[in-house]
Amino acid sequence: MNTNRRIFLSGLASVVTLATTKASWAEGKGLIAILTPSHDNPFFKAEAVGAEARAQELGYETIVLVHDDDPNKQSELFDTAIARGAKAIILDNAGADATVAAVQRAKDAGIPSFLIDREIKEAGIAVSQIVSNNYQGAQLGAEEFVRIMEETGNYVELVGREADTNAGIRSSGYHDIIDQYPDMVMVAQQSANWSQTEAFEKMESILQANPDIKGLICGNDTMAMGAWAALEAAGRSDVLVVGFDGSNDVRDSILAGGIKATVLQPAYRQAQIAVEQADKYIETGSTGLEEKQLMDCVLINADNAADLETFALGA
């Protein structure tokens, strides 16, 4: 373990941020590199943990790297994976446009990429792009939101980072449902860039300008948690909040009567599927599946929140 780590670090031309570095020789099927955004968001940590566990079960070494949503850092990490001779890259990417070149570079170096969670805007470069059915999931969340709002009232929407397709698609799914109800009135719509702290600050100022809000729908759970903290601090825990992701934090809030609902993305399983497809591709030259695949999401509310653990729904 220590030896591997030293070799790995000495192999790095430029210093990159490593969330964790783990290597195990196992049966020597080679190295799988796992790249995700920051593990500060437990969603991405669940992806990394799920991918790493499955890869090691299948006999691969793994390196787990984080790009912090910085395309330049992601590009350096691709160079690292290429230099290390990775057999495959599992990637939750740092931008639909900016990632295309990096995935192409890996492909040119003979390293297939398997994308999870977020798409890139080109087909035919990655081998697989497995993404949550965000549109379907957003519609589930919006239906629940409309239901608990009793189809009427002022509400706020916090959207994700604009460079991320998932921010747009979730907002689109929300509005395709909510806008059917003329008494649902959106009084503010702002991006909090998926960030908990940013959501806290945005919610504070939105609340000052619009004290008469009844609901809040968020593009992800970290923003829901940040906004919920702001609402609680302002004594407004009456505001009905819906998130998206299915994190344990929001699960606990739902069970405690705080946030009302979220939408589970099966992040852990999704990462495992990506590794399984990578393994099949490495061994047979094909996954046997279309490149882009959607995975349906599941509504989480007080009825089933107790069954949720680390982005997977138990029995």
């Binding site: 965000n134 998932n166 279309e290 882009k292 695949q293």
Partner: peptide, 16 residues
């Protein structure tokens, strides 16, 4: 086939 479309947004609009 989803692969033939730019992204989920375009694909969702097709469903619509």
């Amino acid at each position: 086939i989803f692969t033939n479309f730019r992204d989920q947004i375009e694909f969702a609009k097709l469903a619509g």
